[in-house]
Amino acid sequence: MTNADLISPDAPTLAELLDRYATLRDTLLGLEAERDALAAQIKAALQAGEQAETELYRATLKVQRRVEYPLDRFREVFGDAATLEAASIDKRKAEALARAGDLDPERLQALAVVKEVQALVLQPKTI
């Protein structure tokens, strides 16, 4: 018995599955773009002191921190080879190199710059 024998005759064809998948993907991409644009507008209003809430949610801003290593200073401290290797990956790679002993962890930590970004958070009002 083959896989073709197991598929029911009224099952969607592969082309139909692909068409549905593409439709869902395109819909999600459009919804995500709209969500991001709305979030930017709401964040700007909240940063200006406005308040936003619905029957179910209250919008607040939450500060998130992201560690980055300035490329020019990283290069000065650790050299070209380490900069190329770390910059082609991300901060996790630089931290992995420090854990492995290839970079001085204290110097890496001293080099770190923490950036704060504000994330839009919907808090349920039923809590």
Score class of each variant (00 low, 15 high):
Gly30Ile: 00
Glu106Gln: 15
Lys43Ala: 06
Leu38Asp: 01
Arg75Pro: 00
Asp104Met: 10
Leu108Ala: 05
Tyr21Arg: 13
Pro9Met: 08
Ser88His: 02
Thr54Val: 01
Val67Lys: 05
Gly30Glu: 04
Leu46Cys: 04
Glu76Tyr: 03
Leu120Trp: 07
Thr54Ile: 01
Thr83Met: 10
Gln41Asp: 11
Ala11Lys: 01
Gly49Pro: 05
Asp36Tyr: 00
Leu61Thr: 02
Leu120Gln: 04
Arg58Ile: 02
Leu103Ala: 07
Val114Tyr: 11
Leu29Asn: 06
Glu116Gly: 05
Phe74Leu: 07
Ala48Arg: 10
Arg73Ala: 12
Glu85Ala: 14
Val77Ile: 14
Arg20Glu: 14
Leu84Met: 08
Thr126Arg: 15
Glu68Ser: 14
Tyr69Trp: 14
Gln109Tyr: 07
Leu97Asp: 03
Ala86Trp: 01
Leu14Arg: 11
Thr54Trp: 02
Ile127Phe: 07
Phe74Lys: 02
Gly30Arg: 07
Gly30Asn: 06
Ala48Gln: 13
Arg73His: 05
Ala119Arg: 15
Ser88Tyr: 00
Ala82His: 08
Ala98Ile: 03
Arg75His: 10
Glu85Phe: 07
Glu116Asp: 12
Met1Val: 13
Arg25Gln: 12
Val117Ala: 10
Leu61Gly: 01
Pro105Trp: 05
Asp72Arg: 13
Asp36Asn: 13
Tyr69Arg: 00
Arg75Val: 01
Asp102Ser: 15
Ala86Thr: 04
Asp26Leu: 08
Leu14Asp: 13
Ala81Asn: 05
Gln51Tyr: 04
Ala22Asp: 13
Leu97Gly: 00
Gly101Gln: 10
Val121Met: 15
Leu71Phe: 03
Leu29Glu: 15
Leu111Arg: 05
Thr83Gln: 02
Leu6Thr: 09
Gly101Glu: 08
Thr60Lys: 15
Lys91Glu: 03
Lys125Trp: 14
Leu38Met: 10
Glu95Arg: 09
Tyr57Ala: 09
Arg92Asn: 10
Glu50Ala: 13
Ala48Phe: 00
Leu103Ser: 08
Val113Cys: 03
Glu95Trp: 02
Leu97Arg: 09
Glu106Asn: 09
Ala119Met: 09
Ala15Ile: 06
Gln118Leu: 14
Glu34Asn: 01
Ala45Val: 06
Pro124Leu: 13
Gln109His: 12
Lys93Tyr: 04
Ile127Gly: 15
Ala96Leu: 09
Asp5Leu: 11
Thr2Val: 02
Val63Gln: 02
Lys91Arg: 10
Gln123Ala: 11
Leu120Ser: 10
Pro105Arg: 04
Leu18Trp: 03
Thr23Tyr: 09
Pro70Met: 03
Lys115Glu: 14
Glu76Asn: 12
Thr13Gly: 07
Asp26Gln: 12
Arg20Asn: 03
Leu61Ala: 04
Ala112Pro: 04
